[in-house]
């Protein structure tokens, strides 16, 4: 379903992905673990073409991802995404936000003058029902709580009828109880709709509770890739250790800097 071959990505001089090889089968539930800055968000975004790779090949459902407009549009119809900050259109209604999930599938000019297919409206209601927010359908998005907003984000994502759902730290700004609800919902969608789900997380507890396959990322490299039941202490260390030589560089510079500053005031 998804195949990443030797993916490299640089932002300026910073190499964020250093040769990623990963294959994910249809219907899998994959949790992507890694420290802040490990490259989780970047990796997820190479799959739907929000980030263009520098080297290597991403293949999604048999289509090679490129920056050709038609290809990108074709891929994005199959891949939906949810975000840490929910990224809803705050001043728009819940319904309108969910309908956004249909934009890639609909006639551009019709949607711009607010004409949607009857099926799309029906589908939007259906999706809201699944996330338990049908009663909020006409509410403004920013009137909802964080957990509810993420549910709308999920409704928007499944309204797209995707084959793959990418979730970039979907619970990082939610409290533990709500986090579990959201993770449960993602798992349910994975089971019931056979949608391939990739979730990036940094909370290990959630990974243990909901995880099946765990992929660990550290400094742009995959350091762990196994079933959650096989995960051992060694693996956790590999994911969360950051005492790379590269990391000490900035620290040294910082100390030299403060040294100078002190000298000035003596």
């Amino acid at each position: 379903m998804i195949k990443l071959e030797n993916i490299r990505k640089k932002f300026g001089n910073l190499e964020v992905l250093k040769g990623i090889n990963l294959e994910i089968k249809e219907g899998e539930f994959v949790i992507l673990l890694g420290l802040s800055g490990a490259g989780k968000s970047t990796l997820l975004r190479t799959i739907n073409g929000l980030v263009a790779v520098c080297d290597g090949q991403v293949t999604v459902d048999g289509i090679k991802v490129s920056d050709c407009k038609d290809t990108v549009r074709q891929i994005r119809k199959k891949v939906s995404m949810i975000f840490q900050q929910f990224n809803l259109v705050k001043r728009s209604s819940v319904l309108r936000n969910v309908l956004c999930g249909r934009l890639g599938h609909s006639n551009v000019l019709n949607t711009c003058i607010n004409i949607f297919e009857k099926d799309d409206l029906e589908n939007a209601r259906e999706c809201l029902k699944r996330v338990g927010l049908l009663d909020k359908i006409h509410e403004r998005a920013d009137k909802l709580s964080g957990g509810q907003q993420q549910r709308v984000g999920i409704a928007r994502a499944i309204a797209q009828k995707p084959k793959i759902l990418l979730a970039d730290e979907p619970v990082a700004s939610l409290d533990p109880k709500i986090s579990k609800e959201i993770m449960g919902l993602l798992k349910k969608i994975n089971r019931e709709d056979k949608i391939t789900v990739i979730v990036s997380l940094h909370d290990l507890h959630l990974a243990y509770e909901f995880g099946e396959r765990i992929v660990g990322l550290n400094h742009g490299r995959i350091v762990v890739d196994k079933s959650v039941t096989e995960l051992n202490e060694e693996d956790i260390k590999k994911i969360y250790e950051s005492c790379d030589v590269a990391d000490q560089g900035p620290m040294d510079i910082f100390q030299v800097d403060t040294g100078k500053a002190e000298y000035k005031y003596v």
Binding site: M81, L88, V89, T111, C112
Partner: peptide, 18 residues
């Protein structure tokens, strides 16, 4: 928000309107 709409495969015109 722009990124989220891009991710749905929306056309630029739709991104502007929505």
């Amino acid at each position: 928000v722009i990124e989220a709409l891009e991710a749905t495969g929306a056309h630029k015109l739709q991104i502007i309107v929505f």
